[in-house]
Nucleic acid binder design. Structure first.
Lengths: 371, 371
DNA sequence: AGCATCCTTGGTAGCGCTACCATAACTGTC
DNA sequence: GACAGTTATGGTAGCGCTACCAAGGATGCT
């Protein structure tokens, strides 16, 4: 009778006995098969198969002080932005044996710090963290984590190890410039609650308008000053950061307050959908009277009538490249360039095509496609 | 010189030495403080604080054969449905010390089976799994997992331990009935790729129409027969299950094919948005000429013009109740009722209000709210 | 007082794996 | 053919924690 209840599952010692080798050789074969001769490898593989042996990950973790867990920290689960990033991460994890521990930081540095601290307790294989605005304590912990650390969805000059993302400032700047170039003068900015990255986009908006001598602070519409995620209370009547209802209300309010508004740049696509419906309800012609642009380029932007312009950002790619970088490093590869700029794309569609140039240009195409 | 490089972090032995007690007493104090006398507890707590001791989770896992990891399996990250469920789970995990390992099964039973198998290798604290359609092998593994197992987002008669969700069949049935009651006769059904739960909703739709002698298979519009998630190839040009563009195309096609169509029940809100824009583009009056209903009740349904009817399902609550049930069980509580039906709500809005009854009924309310 | 019972505390012996070192076998060089 | 250098294999000793058992002291009862 054993003193301790064992799992009953075969252990590495069972495999070693059956294959007639030392336990350490089995361990070595499982992790670095090339270091074991072919003959032994074959008999070990056979023993593993016959016993249906599966290594115990906890024992491995204790002995090696390293797990297979990639810790991912995202600020929010509400927005599809991060589901796309996560999809990229999951599509990159396949067949790697890595597991993903997902943490929700709720846009709170304090929660993020605590989660990083907790995560380091079990020696993660790697850490993927959203944004570049970590607290000094978090940065220090991450710098000393002893594993790959990838920051994503933003850019900065001094990443902890590596950052993969794009410039929110430039994205805001370029879309605003597009609106100006399309002939709109009084360009509004709509947003829900703003995080650090939203603020960069707002700064880009402001800069573009200031450069054109068109900036008017009165045209900035914002709802929801609190960070609904960071608070622990009132979980049930949870608020989202940006909703279509907010976009509608912002638009209706702006129409009343500033009927001379010519275009709105929405910090989030979902706001732009709400704004569009508000204009529909008031029979305001889009894009002739008022132009609309969003941010993120979710799929419904293209389907809208009129189709809505937006800034396409590479969410899936961002997550996927981060995971690929992690795997590359875990396989012994180098870190590569510390800053990877994935860029973005200004999607010019009917909703900002004030003078019908887009349609005119497209006409021949459409004709061709019908032939 | 130690034979093995230790972490350098204080261990339980260091704490025990400092507090002048046995290591096991420290361990006991950390896990079940009530079993240790107050005097010793105080000095142990002091030692923990002074040394900044943090237990090693991997060692704990190896010795106790149980981790703090709750394994969550969802079929998709694409749809906001599951981000809401996840939010509920995360809102329930706070301050529990539990960690979440998120797996994406891609609507594939084979992948799900493999992930459950892998997850059980590290003795999870609990498992939360979407749906009730597990393979026999998966069911067996889960039944023997030796930890709480909660199935969510659907119902069945024989849960593995406990199921928390709602009836997709009844939801489909009730919404279709609502359309019939609103005066629509030729009611279409739009869907993208369909999973088991979507099929239940379709069955509800069909049943309601058959009961009213109105079923017409020609009015079912569907796009995307493949399961884009289960395949491993072509990850980059990834398709979503249901998109607004699909909804638009389905609507345009239906208008051409069956101009007599009177209403559409979309299996997903995002399809209904596309359908609405398609009708806008053809100047078809909603809800007078054609009614539209969706499923999920995302926030933009209320903001649309006209506001879109939908089936509100309790995604957040589903995730949250699952997590609460897990914690209750881990704290030694009982499993409770094996089947928890969270129900759903038919949100009647302007898009299905063919005869203006809703508006008429609301008028007094609106007047009151202005006073 | 004597005995049974409960509660608190500690010692021992692993959990299943891998790091470190040692050894043996093989290779190539002069 | 002797030597160094390389490669393949194994033994030992933990990694840091907790399950199990035992012992001692306190309590309650007859």
């Amino acid at each position: 009778m054993a003193k301790r209840i064992s799992t009953g599952r075969p252990t590495i010692a069972d495999v070693a006995a059956r294959a007639g080798v030392g336990a350490i050789t089995v361990s070595r074969f499982l992790r670095q098969p090339e270091k074991v001769s072919e003959a032994l490898g074959a008999s070990i593989a056979a023993a593993v198969r016959e016993l249906n042996y599966v290594p115990d990950l906890n024992a491995r973790a204790l002995a090696s002080r390293r797990t297979d867990i990639v810790v991912v920290l995202v600020p929010s689960l509400t927005q599809n932005i991060f589901s796309d990033v996560l999809r990229g991460i999951y599509d990159g994890v396949e067949d790697s044996g890595l597991r993903i521990e997902l943490n929700n930081t709720r846009y709170s540095s304090a929660i993020e710090e605590q989660q990083v601290h907790a995560a380091l307790r079990h020696g993660p294989a790697a850490i993927i963290i959203s944004g570049t605005e970590q607290t000094p304590a978090t940065r220090t912990m991450l710098a000393n984590a002893g594993c790959p650390v990838i920051q994503i969805m933003d850019l900065c000059d001094d990443p902890i190890q590596k950052v993969i993302g794009f410039s929110h400032f430039r994205a805001g700047l370029d879309m605003t410039q597009h609106l100006i170039d399309s002939g709109y003068r009084r360009v509004a900015f709509f947003s829900g609650w703003m995080n650090a990255r939203s603020k960069q986009r707002l700064l880009g908006y402001r800069t573009a308008l200031e450069n054109a001598n068109l900036f008017d602070p009165d045209l900035i519409g914002q709802m929801g000053n609190e960070n609904p995620h960071a608070s622990r209370g009132s979980i049930k009547d949870f608020h989202q950061f940006s909703t279509a209802v907010m976009g509608r209300e912002l638009m209706l309010d702006m129409l009343d307050r500033r009927p001379d508004v010519e275009a709105v740049f929405c910090n989030n696509d979902v706001l732009s959908i709400g704004a569009l419906f508000a204009l529909h309800s008031r029979n305001v012609p889009v894009p002739e009277r008022i132009g609309i642009a969003g941010f993120n380029d979710f799929d419904y932007m293209e389907a809208a009538y009129p189709a809505l312009s937006s800034v396409r950002i590479h969410r899936w790619k961002c997550g996927n490249e981060a995971m690929m970088a992690v795997r590359h490093q875990l396989d012994g590869g180098d870190v590569g360039p510390p800053v990877v700029d994935l860029g973005f794309e200004i999607m010019r569609r009917a909703s900002t095509d004030r003078h019908g140039t887009l349609q005119a240009a497209r006409q021949p195409e459409a004709a061709l496609s019908l032939s």
